[in-house]
Simulated assay, not measured.
Amino acid sequence: MARIPIADMFSLTDKTAIITGATQPLAAEMSRAMAEAGADIVAIISPWDPPEEELEELIRLTGRSLRVYRADVGNIPALRACFSNIWKESVEPDILLNFSTINQRGTVEEMTDDSIDLIFAVNLKGAYVAAQEFGSRLLHLRRPGKIINFASLTAHLPMTHVSAYAAAKAGVVQMTRAMSNDYSKTAMTSSLTNTYPEMDQYITGRTPAGRWATSYDFRGVIVFLSTPASDFITGTTIVVDGGLMDAWGW
């Protein structure tokens, strides 16, 4: 194997990253980090996502390009059509960041069929189909790439009023493991604390770092997972939680 200089191992120069939910605050900061590392950004924005103006400014400052596509990630025909349009415009993909997410909190009894369907469609089925479309394109182009799926601590820790969301995100974790086996042969906080202020003390009191994660805490791990530095990592879950899960004995 040829030796890659360490600076190049952490570079995304001339790479293209497709990011679902890219204008959501956390995803926007990760998009910016990937652009700062050299990647051009292709954003898929759903109707509930913030507008793209702030993301456009963030990417413009890095000198990289941004293309914006619109599709409801939970509407599978629309999502597939969106990827078809991306491929028709000759985008050559290198990285997929499956970030798009939506949640509706409530007790088990309060969750309606519509809420359950929406949460599963966006967080699990939409992520599956995006990875499927991306992976199929890489295979067609005979091109290597990276798929990074964004889950949640609710996939690992028992929390209240998030049963459907937790089930969907746990599915994302197992989906990542299973997909990695196939492909290796050929990765919302402020509204929660505003609505449930008791959660702030509950979480920070149990987190060794003594605070919630910020968008800046995810920049390094996303760049790492996107670059050649992580080429021998596959199907694993990397937890960015300030020590919360270890403190709970997980």
Results as ranks from 00 to 15, higher is better:
residue 169 K to R: 10
residue 134 F to S: 00
residue 185 K to W: 05
residue 119 I to G: 10
residue 70 R to Q: 07
residue 83 F to Q: 04
residue 30 M to A: 15
residue 94 D to N: 15
residue 224 F to K: 05
residue 180 S to H: 07
residue 94 D to K: 02
residue 127 A to L: 04
residue 103 N to C: 08
residue 41 I to L: 03
residue 163 S to F: 09
residue 41 I to R: 03
residue 120 F to C: 01
residue 50 P to T: 05
residue 60 R to Y: 04
residue 79 L to Q: 03
residue 7 A to N: 11
residue 14 D to V: 00
residue 163 S to A: 13
residue 233 I to Q: 08
residue 148 I to W: 03
residue 131 A to G: 13
residue 3 R to N: 14
residue 41 I to Q: 04
residue 97 L to S: 05
residue 28 A to P: 05
residue 118 L to F: 05
residue 9 M to P: 06
residue 22 A to K: 02
residue 218 F to K: 09
residue 39 A to I: 00
residue 130 A to D: 00
residue 97 L to H: 08
residue 84 S to N: 10
residue 176 T to M: 02
residue 187 A to E: 14
residue 16 T to Q: 09
residue 61 L to W: 10
residue 174 Q to D: 11
residue 74 G to N: 09
residue 181 N to C: 04
residue 127 A to M: 02
residue 205 G to C: 14
residue 245 M to A: 03
residue 151 A to V: 06
residue 131 A to M: 03
residue 61 L to H: 13
residue 116 I to M: 12
residue 137 R to S: 08
residue 41 I to K: 00
residue 217 D to R: 00
residue 164 A to N: 11
residue 70 R to H: 09
residue 92 E to M: 14
residue 198 E to F: 10
residue 8 D to W: 13
residue 246 D to Q: 12
residue 29 E to D: 07
residue 38 G to L: 01
residue 164 A to E: 15
residue 219 R to N: 12
residue 24 Q to M: 07
residue 12 L to W: 15
residue 85 N to S: 13
residue 192 L to Q: 08
residue 121 A to S: 14
residue 121 A to H: 10
residue 139 L to F: 07
residue 44 I to Y: 01
residue 169 K to V: 00
residue 23 T to H: 04
residue 166 A to K: 06
residue 231 D to Q: 14
residue 232 F to R: 15
residue 130 A to K: 07
residue 193 T to N: 12
residue 57 E to I: 08
residue 161 H to N: 11
residue 134 F to V: 01
residue 24 Q to I: 06
residue 174 Q to G: 00
residue 204 T to P: 04
residue 205 G to N: 13
residue 190 S to Q: 11
residue 226 S to K: 03
residue 43 A to T: 11
residue 15 K to D: 04
residue 61 L to G: 07
residue 66 L to C: 06
residue 72 D to Y: 11
residue 135 G to A: 09
residue 174 Q to A: 12
residue 194 N to W: 15
residue 136 S to R: 14
residue 90 S to Q: 15
residue 25 P to V: 02
residue 131 A to N: 09
residue 124 L to K: 03
residue 237 T to M: 11
residue 135 G to T: 01
residue 248 W to T: 03
residue 78 A to W: 08
residue 172 V to M: 06
residue 57 E to N: 10
residue 165 Y to C: 01
residue 92 E to I: 07
residue 191 S to P: 15
residue 78 A to D: 06
residue 13 T to S: 13
residue 152 S to V: 06
residue 176 T to H: 04
residue 206 R to H: 08
residue 70 R to G: 01
residue 137 R to A: 05
residue 21 G to Q: 13
residue 232 F to H: 15
residue 245 M to V: 03
residue 122 V to F: 00
